[in-house]
Design a protein around this nucleic acid. Structure first.
Length: 806
DNA sequence: TTATCCACTTAGCATGGAGGGG
DNA sequence: CCCCTCCATGCTAAGTGGATAA
């Protein structure tokens, strides 16, 4: 397959045409990129799938003293040049370009117009820019902490608490003891003292309460392999329970001593649930204009393709080629269908539309009944018992067959992802626990293991990439996950104590004679300042994306005197475009690294993630590249919340939170596609605002007239208005003004957030304790910030002390 | 060493149902 | 009350990074 062919809008037609003759209409091809001329073409294409974005950012450099905690990357709008370039990238879709709202947000400095809302801090930032280095410093210096002492607490904390306690509520018998332990502890205060590695009360608390597991940080050491046997006392739940309870107290110690990577003692679950078998619909597609017969298996794959008609994949050459290759295999050599161009999948597509319609036509009762039925069937798969505690299972449904939807320009997009059968699946379960019954009669599991050094309940090999695994894990709300989540944040907090040192260290090495050292220094600097990912090496059969260690010469442009422009596709083929001012020695080093290499060469040719991480580990135990992302994200949130929250209404406070959240999202480059309904939504909002303004003006005029004794102007239909007193009018006017203001804020926020994904950082990077503490201090109900599932996931963080600081 | 295996976290998108506005 | 957003949730791809094999 001609993977290299470029797609311009035309191509897409070419492909789709034949396949969907009848319904030409709907295909949307707009988003297809029109490549710009330069060498970046490929990038654009890729990125377009996902919608590129720009961010021009400016980074302020911090380095100076104090800022150790500061985030580094502040983004700013860049010069026009840059904008243009960007526009060129996305031609169609965004002509108007939204640019960086994101960027804008931060600093409006650059954007004259924009100023409306928010950003208080902008000013700071701006200056900074201007001033260049100082910003950071400033930030850190500025407001001292503030608010927290206010103590509060109360209400907020209690509510959430319960919800979280999963272990407590879980039924399973055990626990009263457990329960007690846990709940009790919870009252303890939190810790502000971080790390000490583990000594924290929190940690302790968790340990006790949560089921026993806690994985000792000390992994390694113990030669895992031994798993088998060990402690499985199992069997009788009661027994288990009892043991558990007893163990609890000493638990963590014991664990550490005894066995390194032990994750659980007893594990029970019911395995996985399979998607229903394929039900043929019998609708015949056309080949060369004539209906063709397909076996159910062949029809199934044809259907998979047909229903993707209105996605972008349907017009991608790679996708089509891969699909057709795999489908042809199923059709067999002798089948009439030989050429994709002669296939017309429309009848199947239309059948699919009808089915969809039927579904939406169902009454809510029918839907509900269906749902309940499903629930009933799935209920037993939803739960597992880990060390006697009932925990939710994450993905107990085996992935159904389908066509692979890789992101970006994935070389394997469109490949058939075949049906997974029991014989593909390995089950992991406590020794002595009943092995889940294979739900498909006559078949059996590939293997049943009893490995308590891992947390997965089952896995199979990914059919698209045999060497990859798909695991069934516990849900995020489980204590096993909660525990490791907490450890992740504790590690990031620990970095706080080392960061100054680390920065000093790499700064010194910018000029090292040792090239390896120098590259490590510069790479670390970028990871720290820009929150870049580590950048593991990738195979050719994956989308071509990069991270720090895999940056290519073509991804970095040196802009004298000391700015760098980064332009590359990162994880999920999301484009990272950012121009930053860096320290001169780094600038020099980068130029030097790039010298004499061709476009595709690695900037850091003497480096890979293993070496980098090995070095980091020397600076702080457990430190790896990704810790910097967590650290920078959380410290940024903590700083902004503490500096910028003022007394005010709840919505105002929440606004501070979301601005902070947004800044983190920008630092981490968490983007999303512009919601489909964005434009129409905006239009509506604007209309609404205009209406309100008109109303306000009318009232103002009325007020004037009433005051001066003039008669009111009549309504359109000639009726006279009821006469209002000036007081009433004034109230009305002020109410409507407020409303207008609110809507303006909504409008601005929505516009600025249309390409920013806030959820990712909230779920993965921001220490929930920061949020919880802030909510307690400022009397914002935690539910306003965390959804139900997130709340469940962060149960371990709910009882944090209001004075907690990251 | 480097390549591979393995385990687990992090990511954006589609969707469907709860809840808000007309 | 109904429609219609809009957001939470589910899904699964795509990263990171440790350990082991070659």
């Amino acid at each position: 397959m001609p993977a290299t062919r470029t797609f311009d809008s035309d191509d897409s037609d070419e492909f789709k045409g034949p396949a969907f003759k009848r319904s030409s209409a709907s295909l949307k091809q707009n988003s297809m990129p029109t490549p710009s001329s330069s060498g970046n073409v490929q990038h654009c294409q890729k990125s377009t799938l996902k919608r590129p974005h720009v961010e021009d950012v400016l980074m302020v450099d911090t380095d100076d003293s104090d800022d150790d905690d500061k985030p580094l990357a502040l983004r700013k709008k860049a010069d026009d040049r840059e904008f243009k370039r960007i526009n060129a990238y996305n031609v169609d879709s965004d002509s108007e370009d939204e640019k960086p709202l994101s960027a804008r947000l931060f600093k409006d400095a650059a954007s004259p117009s924009g100023g409306n809302v928010s950003d208080d801090d902008d000013s700071d930032d701006d200056k900074t820019l201007a001033a260049r280095f100082s910003l950071v410093t400033r930030n850190s210096v500025d407001m001292p902490i503030g608010p927290n002492n206010t103590a509060l607490n109360g209400s907020a904390s209690s509510a959430p608490r319960n919800s979280m306690k999963r272990p407590c509520d879980s039924n399973i018998q055990p626990s009263s003891a457990l329960k007690k332990a846990k709940c009790t502890d919870s009252s303890a205060s939190a810790s502000s003292e971080d790390d000490g590695s583990d000594n924290v009360p929190l940690a302790r608390r968790l340990t006790v309460g949560e089921s026993s597991k806690r994985k000792p940080p000390a992994k390694d050491i113990a030669k895992k392999k031994k798993n088998k046997s060990s402690s499985s006392s199992k069997d009788n739940k009661k027994v288990v329970t009892k043991m558990k309870t007893e163990k609890v107290k000493s638990n963590s110690k014991v664990r550490e001593a005894s066995g390194g990577g032990k994750k659980w003692s007893t594990l029970e679950h019911n395995g996985v649930i399979f998607p229903p078998p394929y039900e043929p619909h019998g609708v015949k597609m056309l080949y060369n204009g004539k209906p063709v017969d397909l076996t159910p298996e062949q029809e199934e794959v044809a259907t998979m393709f047909s229903v993707m008609k209105d996605t972008e994949y349907a017009s991608k050459e790679t996708f089509i080629n891969n699909f057709f290759t795999d489908w042809s295999n199923i059709l067999g050599k002798t089948h009439t269908i030989k050429k994709f161009e002669l296939c017309d999948f429309t009848p199947i597509y239309e059948w699919h539309l009808r089915e969809k319609e039927k579904k939406t036509q169902m009454t809510s009762e029918e839907k509900k009944a269906l749902r309940e039925e499903k629930m009933k069937q799935e209920d037993k798969f939803m739960w597992a018992f880990v060390d006697g505690v009932k925990e939710k299972v994450g993905n107990f449904r085996v992935e159904p067959p389908g066509l692979f939807r890789g992101r970006g320009e994935h070389p394997k997009m469109g490949r058939l992802k075949g049906r997974i059968r029991p014989s593909d699946i390995t089950i992991n379960i406590g020794e002595g626990a009943p092995v889940p019954v294979c739900p498909i009669p006559g078949e059996s599991w590939k293997e049943v293991k009893h490995d308590n050094t891992v947390t997965w309940l089952a896995f199979w090999n990914d059919p698209i990439n045999q060497k990859d695994f798909k695991y069934v894990f516990l849900a995020a709300s489980s204590s096993l996950k909660g525990q490791s989540d907490k450890e992740k944040y504790e590690k990031a907090r620990k970095l706080k104590d080392h960061i100054r040192n680390i920065r000093a260290n790499y700064t010194k090495d910018f000029r090292s004679k040792d090239q390896v050292k120098k590259q490590i220094a510069v790479a670390t600097y970028l990871i720290d300042k820009l929150a870049l990912r580590a950048g593991n090496e990738k195979d050719d059969d994956e989308a071509d994306t990069v991270g720090c260690c895999t940056l290519k010469v073509e991804n970095v442009t040196c802009l004298p005197p000391n700015k760098l422009q980064f332009d590359f596709l990162g994880k999920d083929s999301i484009r990272y475009l950012n121009t930053v001012e860096i320290e001169p020695p780094v600038y020099k080093a980068i130029m030097e690294f790039c010298a004499g290499k061709n476009k595709g060469g690695h900037v850091f040719d003497k480096l890979d993630t293993t070496k980098l991480n090995a070095h980091l580990k020397d600076l702080m135990p457990g430190l790896t590249a990704k810790v910097f992302r967590t650290y920078n994200a959380s410290i940024t949130l903590d700083n902004i919340l503490n500096k910028q929250t003022e007394d005010g209404s709840r919505p105002e406070k929440m606004n501070v939170y979301s601005r902070a959240n947004k800044q983190v999202a920008i630092i981490c480059n968490h983007q999303r596609a512009v919601p489909k309904s964005h434009d129409s939504q905006m239009t509506k909002l604007i209309e609404k605002i205009d209406e309100l303004k008109a109303q306000r003006d009318e009232w103002k005029e009325d007020l004037e007239r009433v005051k001066t004794g003039n008669p009111l102007a009549g309504d359109e239909d000639g009726k006279r208005k009821r006469k209002l007193t000036p007081q009433v009018l004034e109230i009305k006017i002020s109410t409507i003004e407020t409303k207008i203001k609110e809507m303006d804020i909504t409008k601005t926020n929505r516009e600025e957030l249309k390409t920013v994904a806030l959820g990712t950082s909230k779920i993965n990077y921001l220490d929930p304790r920061i949020t919880v503490a802030w909510c307690k201090t400022h009397e914002v109900p935690i539910e306003k910030i965390f959804s139900k599932t997130i709340l469940a996931k962060f149960g371990w963080a709910m009882d944090v002390d209001p004075d907690f600081r990251f």
